[in-house]
Computed example of a mutant assay.
Amino acid sequence: MSDKFRVAKNSPCVQGHFPDGAIVPGAYLLAQVHASFSDRFAGHELAELKKVKFIAPVLPGEAVTLSWDDSKWPAVKVVLQVADQVRLQASGRAV
């Protein structure tokens, strides 16, 4: 299962984060993870998200693919990629 999103270069969340080299804030990416989880697994909550690894920054304007692995439910894994490059990976537990 995967979702896609893109953060506009003029989005308020990237303004000033960081001047002369804007990146999408990690808090915004984690909010996208939680929103995607809620959409994909309605009726369940993401009880914890651990082993979050920010591998490379997401830049404004990049198309991000968010993929879930729920093959070991209630354990879940999530990966955010830009093209074929992993930018964030994490594991969690649903309730």
Rank of each mutant, 00 (worst) to 15 (best):
A90H: 05
S71N: 09
R87G: 08
V14T: 05
Q32R: 10
D39F: 02
S71D: 12
R93G: 07
H44Q: 14
A90Y: 08
Q32I: 04
G26W: 06
K50I: 11
D69A: 07
A8W: 05
R87K: 15
A47S: 11
A47F: 03
A42Q: 12
S91H: 06
V33P: 01
V86T: 09
L46P: 00
K77V: 11
S36D: 06
A94E: 05
G92M: 15
F41K: 08
A27M: 11
N10T: 15
R40A: 14
S71R: 09
C13W: 14
R87A: 10
K53W: 10
H34P: 06
G61I: 13
F5P: 01
H44E: 07
D84I: 06
V95K: 13
A42S: 14
T65D: 12
W68T: 11
L46D: 07
A8Y: 08
L49R: 00
Q81V: 04
V86N: 00
K4P: 04
V78G: 09
V14K: 00
L30R: 04
K77N: 07
V7C: 00
F5S: 03
I55N: 04
E48C: 08
A8R: 15
P12I: 05
I55V: 14
V14Y: 00
S38W: 03
A90P: 01
A75I: 11
V78I: 13
K51H: 09
F5L: 14
S91C: 03
D3N: 13
M1N: 14
M1E: 10
D84A: 12
G61A: 03
K51R: 15
A75F: 12
F37P: 06
P57A: 02
T65W: 13
H44C: 03
E48H: 06
V76W: 07
A83D: 10
V7P: 01
F18H: 03
H34V: 14
E45C: 06
F18D: 14
C13F: 00
R93S: 09
D70V: 10
V24Q: 01
S91F: 07
E48V: 14
K72S: 15
L59V: 05
L66Y: 02
V86I: 12
S11N: 10
A90N: 07
L49G: 06
K72R: 13
